[in-house]
């Protein structure tokens, strides 16, 4: 019974049906199913299925967005229960677009997928100073620092963030991930980041796997 309703939540979420998702989440809670289970097995897993389809070009951005909106509707209901139960997120991520760069769509999609992967996401916005990345990560005890840059003129600022981490001697505490149109795997090597991913879903998957490996 429990499995059936969670399966249904996942399916409605994949179709982007926010109202149905909300209703079923409430029902599930009423049935006494654990909020964490509803979140992980219903909402997040459903969202990761959509993310996977997006990565394989089976669906486009709108389907993902609508699903994510439905996910958020469900999460909003679960949140008080999760807080009350003292549930920990799967990890914490600080993300932003680097100094000098105002592009945000790619970064926003990564933030969205990270949330779907169970991360608590601290989105610093655009044109973010290197120090701000470091301070926020230290403050919240982040696992992941994610940076976006869409211009060759702003890519070097990813290096500045890593330099700032090194200067503070905290580089090893974080999984540093980078992305954006001009960014490449070799650029990642060059600046000493940990991961480069080409799309939002991959970013979330890689972040999740890296955090799990680190915590294990």
């Amino acid at each position: 019974m429990a499995a059936a309703i969670i399966e249904e939540i996942s399916e409605f979420l994949q179709k982007g049906r926010a109202k149905n998702v909300k209703k079923l989440v409430e029902e599930a809670l009423a049935q006494g199913i654990d909020a964490q289970e509803i979140l992980n097995e219903g909402l997040l897993s459903g969202m990761m299925i959509v993310g996977g389809k997006f990565k394989r070009n089976e669906v486009f951005v709108p389907e993902v967005l609508v699903a994510a909106r439905a996910m958020n509707a469900g999460v909003a209901i679960l949140e008080p229960h999760l807080v009350a139960a003292g549930n920990e997120p799967m990890g914490k991520a600080v993300i932003g677009t680097v100094k000098g760069d105002l592009h945000d769509i790619g970064k926003n999609l990564v933030a969205m997928m990270m949330k779907a992967a169970g991360f608590e996401v601290y989105d610093l916005g655009v044109d973010v100073e290197a120090e701000t990345f470091v301070e926020k990560a230290e403050e919240v005890g982040a696992d992941v620092i994610g940076m976006s840059a869409l211009l060759t003129t702003t890519m070097p600022n990813m290096q500045s963030v890593i330099d700032a981490l090194n200067a503070k001697g905290v580089r090893e505490k974080y999984i540093v991930m980078i992305g954006g149109a001009p960014v490449t795997e070799s650029f990642k090597e060059q600046i000493g980041a940990d991961y480069y991913t080409a799309d939002a879903t991959s970013a979330a998957e890689v972040a999740k796997a890296a955090v799990e490996a680190k915590k294990a």
Binding site: P62, D104, N108, M112, D123
Partner: peptide, 18 residues
Amino acid sequence: RSTQAFDDGDYVKGMLCD
């Protein structure tokens, strides 16, 4: 408006506005 919508988790609106 786009940035605001993304912050609010209304991804559809955020993307559309952009």
